[in-house]
Nucleic acid binder design. Structure first.
Length: 450
DNA sequence: GCATGATCATGC
DNA sequence: GCATGATCATGC
């Protein structure tokens, strides 16, 4: 046996670790336990799939140490669930890479940060999570040694600095997933009321962890599975540019030459084919400015889960439209708690707004771009209030009367359907037109300082 | 003039 | 055929 131990692989050797991991592909932990002739009492093993994998398959002790799991090889082992959505495999959740110690992280430099020391080389084991199934029977789908490409690592470095800067400003309690692009400070506690101390403020903050967003995990999954899907992805900013400027400034720079021009002028300059009456007209112009050909998607936008929206401002200064989210299912909505609601998830994302002002003759003129995420406080007050009230009224069988724009400064509910025949059942069995949550245009305008 | 209710265009 | 993002119509 390598290294004089009884391990079925050499924990100091990267290739040996990887080869051992790759034997898992297409198999389950129960099968592997049988093959390796080890006893695993899956029912009593706390911590589910991840700890069983570490303890019994790799025979390492799961723990919160500051060094990678395979210390000599510098590799950190992570297992993470997949789910099936319309026959495709996607990340079930973000990948947590370690709790944030607010008091310690403020003293760290990126180059020798505990995050980087531990997570520079990740051995990712993706398994298909199926509700109701014993974790021992989850099928392992992907095994991947993941090292961040330089251009991704630059964005992650900038994300890390953004998070640390907020803690240094005494604003750890205002951290939000939407602040950053790939690496996020996500809440991490079984008890959502739990708070912990931060170094530069007396305000207690939610315990948070550094995590790769689900959108970033999806990019790893696609990269591992489907060559075809990769084809349409175009990176916009390379590592060299990112070493000189941050990602969001680099994107703003792309738009700068077109500020002050009308949409039609920009479309003409860039050869945009979409017709002016098409609802995708502004999206096509945005893509063209970013240098995307039809059918291409911006790699970083996708990996960050950025929500791109066009906003038009009327000559009067008020926004022409509010911003919609996708229609909800009344019956599913009332099953959700606020903490795990789709609305909260959507509002935790980062947005990219492309803003046009209508001039005196009604032509839209490109005015500005803005990256934005909803302040945590507004999410937890306004959005939450709208959500709770909506759920309450549907439960009371008053789904016809949901919170209106005049009821809430930031979020309201409106119809969002194909037409009046596009209905869906409420819990009581009434058929009502589909509705969705909307962000109030006036709120966004104020938020963006327009 | 604005909130509210209703519907459209496109791509997958 | 529908989800998604966007836009229109009307009545107060």
């Amino acid at each position: 046996m390598p290294n004089g131990t009884e391990l079925p692989y050499d924990p100091t050797d990267r290739d040996s670790i990887l080869a051992h991991a790759q034997r898992l592909i297409g198999r389950t932990l129960r099968e592997m336990a049988r093959d390796l002739d080890v006893q695993i009492d899956f029912t009593s093993d706390k911590g589910g799939f991840g700890s069983a994998l570490e303890r019994h398959y790799f025979r390492i002790n799961p723990g919160n140490k500051s060094e990678p799991d395979f210390e000599e090889a510098g590799i950190e082992l992570k297992s993470t669930p997949l789910k099936r959505v319309r026959s495709k495999l996607v990340a079930k959740e973000r990948l947590v890479l370690g709790m944030i110690d607010y008091c310690a992280i403020v003293g760290e430099q990126w180059e020798n940060s505990s995050f980087l020391r531990k997570n520079a080389h990740l051995l990712l084991v993706f398994y298909l999570h199926e509700p109701g199934k014993d974790p021992a029977d989850f099928v392992i789908k992907i095994v991947r040694l993941w090292e961040f490409p330089p251009e991704d690592l630059e964005i992650i470095r900038q994300d890390w600095h953004k998070i640390v800067a907020k803690i240094r400003e005494g604003r750890a309690h205002e951290l939000s997933e939407g602040d950053t692009l790939y690496l996020a400070a996500c809440t991490k506690s079984a008890d959502s009321s739990k708070r912990t101390k931060q170094p530069y403020s007396s305000v207690p903050a939610k315990p948070r962890a550094l995590a790769l967003k689900a959108s970033y995990m999806n990019s790893i999954i696609r990269d591992s599975l489907e060559r075809r899907e990769k084809a349409g992805l175009r990176p916009l900013v390379d590592a060299q540019e990112l070493s000189k400027t941050d990602f969001e400034s680099a994107i703003a720079e792309r738009f700068a030459p077109y500020i002050g021009k009308t949409a039609d002028e920009i479309a003409g300059l860039l050869g945009v084919k979409a017709s002016r009456s098409s609802k995708g007209y502004f999206a096509s112009i945005t893509d063209a400015i970013l240098g995307l050909s039809p059918g291409e998607r911006a790699a970083e936008f996708e990996k960050a889960g950025l929500v791109v929206r066009t906003m038009r401002i009327l000559p009067s200064g008020r926004p022409k439209e509010d911003i919609s989210f996708r229609a909800f299912d009344y019956r599913k909505l009332v099953e959700q708690t606020w903490e795990e609601s789709d609305l909260r998830e959507e509002l935790s994302k980062r947005f990219f707004f492309v803003i046009y002002r209508l001039n005196a003759s009604g032509a839209p003129v490109l005015a500005a771009t803005r990256f934005w995420s909803m302040p945590l406080n507004d999410v937890e007050t306004h959005a939450r209030a709208c959500f709770e009230e909506t759920v309450l009224r549907i439960r009371e069988d008053r789904a016809e009367y949901l919170p209106r724009k005049s009821d809430n400064p930031a979020v309201h509910v409106r119809p969002h359907a194909r037409d009046s025949r596009d209905v869906i059942e409420t819990p009581s069995g009434k058929k009502l037109c589909k509705k969705s949550f909307w962000l109030n245009g006036s709120y966004i305008k104020d938020q963006l300082g327009l």
